[in-house]
Design a protein around this nucleic acid. Structure first.
Lengths: 349, 349
DNA sequence: TGCCTCTGCGAAAACGTTTGGGCAACTTTC
DNA sequence: GAAAGTTGCCCAAACGTTTTCGCAGAGGCA
């Protein structure tokens, strides 16, 4: 079997020099023609010859050499705290598509137990990465320092940070409000909120959305109706129990995962969903449709978030540094639509 | 338009030359010392000076330049058909950790609607990627041709392919059997199988595991007890209905997702799980614990799969081509343990 | 004819590494 | 005390691009 593995015997790729030789011109000319240089100044005839030769020899520019020369690797990095979280998976997907469309390559790095700092540190000194998208949970100073030290353009996603930090996030406050309003429209008055991590951007925003929707409907956003569970399904039962003590008829969960756990716990207690308690969630995903009842939830444009992030990043890359401050650096994406399924119904009196 | 690339104002990284100047030696000496060259021949004193200078200047070798020179980019690529599938997410996680530990960078690419071919095509001519891990669903010829044309070492994961193809997969046949045997041990005799994609590696293997466990227990592996649902939750209800007609008392689902959908559908029909029907699944994941009842399943070493894949790939990279054929190129990972939760119980007569 | 401006292209210097080949000085050997 | 071997380092040529500079020749203008 022809099993050529090591780089040593791998056939050499065709280079600029090969094309130049084939077309009978200098490498510089080939480079210019193939790059479609603006001030290109070549005869149509020569250009034709070069293009044909390149075609025939299947020439592809070596990205390494190009990057070395231009200090532009056309490579972006996205740092995520976890990949199994559907929100991040979806964001990565969107970012990858956008990056690919723009001729960039997207690298994925994981920030398990705060290792983002080390990743960024490695990035900072190598010229491999042109820009970074950061989706890390960490909001402490170490990460922020790493970001600053990195000395590369970046955009933060999934949260908005104070200061002049470019961010793109979903307006989860609004998303929350939509879900809660749906419950109100169904006649519910005592609506509990299983909160995410309070103190963090999304946790706070979602809680606030609940609060605003309640207030807007003239209902009391009683803090007693909020029970924090973070992103941890293990903490959901206790939270739900507390809410049940408060005689809620509906529960609004801050994440799809905790929402599913909420329904599971209600079932465990022998309660019917939505017969006894209605449940509404946030973020739409396969998970919402493999439980019974299927979950009513409001979609989040997480994939768009990825798209927008690389769009912003690439814009930033193409701009001289002084112009960078001119555009509004934070983008808050409108939430998606309410997807009505089976986990919420009108209040039976 | 002013084409002022941002790189202009970004501070230049410290280079080999800077270190050389600081230490008062030649760049070549610095290079050798820092690489810990085997036949290094430098005085301890000089070496000390160089190391200190490098430390002080925070020198990090430019991976681009190194790759250009050595044709070794220390970059691996993993091609996955979907990232939201927990199996792949977990495999990526494992692969990334192993790659990082070995000083490699792992790139992730998506093979949405068969775009892997184009990804591989781009790879083939650039010297950026040293080796590829392929987890694509596609088993048609176009992908296989792209792989061959790529002319780079690779390993296929999540399935074993015929021929001399290096593969690492989980022994899902054995995993299946474990789950089915658990049901048998609980007293079940009529056990249905909600199959994955029959005709594909994993679909077949899991079905075969069910069959073998049934036969081993002296039960009839009646083909009527098998209903295919692929990986698509939408197809689960019909499959479950068919199984119910066959009077099964337990269902073994080929994937966690379809298993969850199975439970959901049973609930929808007003059946109790595991009171009326027991359900056992494969692959352990958060999802198994946010539904009620929590799902009894057998763990799959998907993360190990990623680990092993890069281990094999890196071994391959370091070997002369003739030695490559010596080691057994396919690795079948033993399944994990049965995780008993609440979705299966002993048969009530 | 002399001068100037375009055109079309080549020469060569980078980018930051790695690496083979050398060359002194110093040590051993006879 | 000279030949031979060792040690410690430097020189320079790559790797495959991009890009600045410059140089011939062609044409325009006086």
């Amino acid at each position: 079997m022809t099993k050529e593995t090591t780089s040593a015997q791998r056939s050499r790729n065709t280079t600029l020099r090969d094309v130049a030789k084939a077309a009978g011109v200098d490498v510089s000319t080939v480079s210019r023609v193939l790059k479609n240089d603006k001030d290109v100044r070549t005869s149509a005839e020569t250009r034709q010859r070069i293009i044909e030769a390149a075609e025939r020899l299947k020439y592809r520019a070596n990205p390494l050499a190009r990057a070395l020369k231009t200090a532009q690797s056309r490579t972006l990095l996205i740092v995520v705290p976890q990949i199994e979280n559907p929100v991040f998976a979806s964001a990565i997907l969107g970012a990858e598509a956008e990056a690919r469309a723009r001729g960039y390559v997207l690298l994925v790095a994981y920030d398990q137990n705060g290792s983002a700092a080390s990743v960024l540190e490695r990035v900072s000194q190598s010229s491999l990465i042109e820009g970074v998208i950061i989706a890390s949970f960490d909001e402490d100073d170490s990460l922020r320092q790493s970001i600053a030290a990195m000395n590369r353009p970046y955009v933060v996603i999934n949260r908005v940070l104070p200061g002049d930090v470019p961010c793109v996030a979903v307006d989860t406050c609004a998303a929350s409000a939509i879900g809660v309003r749906h419950l109100i429209d169904l006649g519910h008055r005592r609506i509990g909120h299983v909160a995410g991590r309070l103190g963090r951007f999304n946790g706070n925003a979602r809680r606030q959305g609940w609060e605003e929707a309640m207030s807007a409907a003239g209902l009391d956003p009683d803090p007693q109706l909020v029970a924090e569970a973070g992103y941890d399904p293990e903490r959901v039962p206790a939270a739900v129990d507390r809410l049940l003590e408060r005689k809620v008829t509906a529960i609004h969960a801050a994440t799809l995962l905790t929402g599913a756990a909420t329904i599971a716990h209600l079932h465990k207690l022998g309660l019917d969903v939505p017969g006894d308690i209605s449940v509404v969630t946030m973020h739409d995903d396969l998970l919402a449709r493999v439980v019974y009842p299927e979950i009513t939830t409001v979609g989040l444009p997480t994939s768009e978030m990825g798209h927008e992030a690389v769009r912003m990043l690439v814009d930033q890359l193409g701009m001289p540094s002084d112009a960078a401050s001119q555009r509004p650096p934070v983008l808050l994406l409108a939430p998606g639509n309410l997807v009505v399924r089976g986990s919420a119904s009108s209040l039976k009196i």
